[in-house]
Design a protein around this nucleic acid. Structure first.
Lengths: 207, 207, 207, 207
DNA sequence: CATGAATGAGCCTTCATTCAT
DNA sequence: AATGAATGAAGGCTCATTCAT
């Protein structure tokens, strides 16, 4: 028991250690350019050891994607508050999604470019990350819409509009725009007010 | 004279022919993965010939970036700021920026991932593309603000918010989201209305 | 024309040059142990060049097998004499088969061990080399048998017995038995007499 | 005592267990291709354990060679030279040698290719296996020759001719010739008659 | 002794780049 | 200017071997 669990724990630690190193190295140099030896060095192990935990460089990338998917899911699950002033809710929503992205900035810097470039990965990315988030958000919007809190707009469009806004600002930050980096809070706040103002009117019909 | 000009024209044609092939091949397979031989094949020349026009693979990428920058500038220049209903203006603005991105989708699919991954390229990208666009847009917003057409919001934030929104939707489309691909017009229209509604108030403080 | 043919000839020469180097290197060190770099060095080209002519190390081995098959076929085709004293004919037959093996000793030293070890190669080896030879020989024996020159023995068995004998002596030589190496002629002659004496009786019925 | 002996027995069993696994694995996949891990798995131990019994992969091969040599010696020792009809004796001799090979077919399939390819091993193989057998057989033939039972032929040649025949048929079977595999008995019988018929005359020159 | 994770030397293969024709 | 064969540096991956537990 104890021994097995100890073993297991040590193995998991190694995995995380290597994944962390991979995240760092890949995000600094790019997945394609970075060498497995770099990852090994960053993890403080030999290159052979990396292959004891991940069958190939691609598998390592998939593991990063999985990690990202898992953490995004977790972030998503915590987003349950949706009462109160609609403007505040939407603003908070945007902020939360952005924070979730920022929290995984390194991972996203690795995965996002590869998603754009690698068709196979793209599919998995959608199935495991974007798809579920979109689905969840659409359902939320549909719910709010039925509750009369929202103008009747195609939920799918709203989701894309909002997700796109957040994603876009995040990409600007990834692209190294310093202003976005430094003042993302205010930009996001601005976006939050924007969406709130635009969509809030739905429930207070001109009396 | 004539001979030289003929020569020059032929050279330019070859250059464009190769750039076109590179755009296609790189956007299909990704810059890092695609081989120079692929580019040569797609251009219908031998690999040696590619090197007669571009010193290296990286140089080829830089040429694509330059091409992108140039075309974006041209698109930008055509965007005269218009008068009239602010909502319509903003909506049109978003649509236009999006169309400009879509028109170069292939190029962007090559360049954008590399911008995220390659620090050196990132700097050039900002200096030559995003920077100028942001500057221009900021000036426009500042102008409108002074003219009383706009609430006093930091222009830099507004620019990032709007540019981010457009860019984000475009990235969603690059990532293969079918809904975004098929209904980008409506999503953009929605975004246009959103921003219009939110910022339009500036000019109706007339009580 | 001339240019193409010149090109073709140069290409063929390179191929043979590399095949020769491969034969030598593989037979000296063994296919598995020898490195592609060794082959390249022996051929006086860079390792990359080898791959311009052979897709992989395995393909190189297959090319050697094909070469062997082709040359054996050619040797076989020349074996048409079968008149006169049966003993002399059989002796000559054995000698000829043995000479054919000896002439390709280097190639056989590469291919034979791999045939024993590599199932996929084994099948091709049989289809392309041993099978045809056995078929041809069996037909010959059946013919001689019908002509009354031979006792009625299953042709397939005779072929195996004789082919086996020759092959076995050859293998002894491959295994480095000096006596066999030095005196193979006499050993083969002995075998020739043996088979002749044993099978010749068929046509001179006990009087 | 008891404890030591028990230990010793256990060690010996492990050794044999590993040798057996190595025989199987190496003969299936080939010595060079098979991995030590495969051997360990087949033996039901960890790879580390294999190294507790054999210093290296090469040593393991040498152990197989030694095993082969030992068993062949034993088989040889049981082959008393027999009296009676010379034909029957020679036929029996061939059959017996072939059976001895067949009994160790797996081992031979491992060792024979390596003997052809590995010069160092080749020497040991001759010193420990072929050499002794040849010596023994030559002596036998010389003895029979002196006893007038045999024509005066160089014993060394006869030995090679006969050994080669048996070995050759065995190699054909190793190479996967199905006919040889299925009907080796009859082929060997044919060879036996052949040699008997050819050499038998020696003792009845009484005209 | 058994274990199996860690090691790292080494090899096959790729592909950007060069250059003689 | 165009060609494409040659180049060789570089990297992903394997696996025999070691050694701490």
């Amino acid at each position: 028991m104890t021994k097995d669990m100890y073993q297991q724990k040590r193995e998991d630690l190694r995995r995380e250690q290597i994944l962390g190193a991979a995240t760092q190295v890949f995000s600094e140099r790019g997945f394609q350019v970075a060498k497995m030896q770099d990852v090994a060095n960053a993890a403080g192990v030999s290159n052979g050891t990396v292959y004891n935990y991940f069958r190939s460089k691609d598998e390592l990338l998939l593991a990063l994607l999985a990690q990202l998917a898992e953490r995004e899911q977790r972030a998503e699950q915590m987003e349950q508050l949706k009462t109160g002033d609609l403007g505040a809710v939407m603003a908070a929503q945007l902020q939360r999604r952005f924070k979730a992205l920022q929290a995984q900035k390194e991972l996203w810097r690795v995965v996002l470019p590869e998603l754009m470039v690698n068709p196979a990965l793209r599919q998995r990315g959608f199935e495991e990350i974007f798809g579920p988030i979109f689905k969840l958000s659409e359902d939320t919007f549909v719910g709010m819409s039925k509750a009369g809190k929202l103008r009747k707009l195609k939920a799918a469009h709203m989701v894309r509009a909002m997700a796109g806004s957040v994603l876009g600002v995040f990409v600007l930050s990834l692209l190294g725009d310093e202003t976005t980096d430094l003042e993302s809070d205010q930009i996001l706040a601005l976006l939050g007010q924007t969406f709130a103002a635009a969509f809030a009117g739905g429930n207070k019909p001109k009396k």
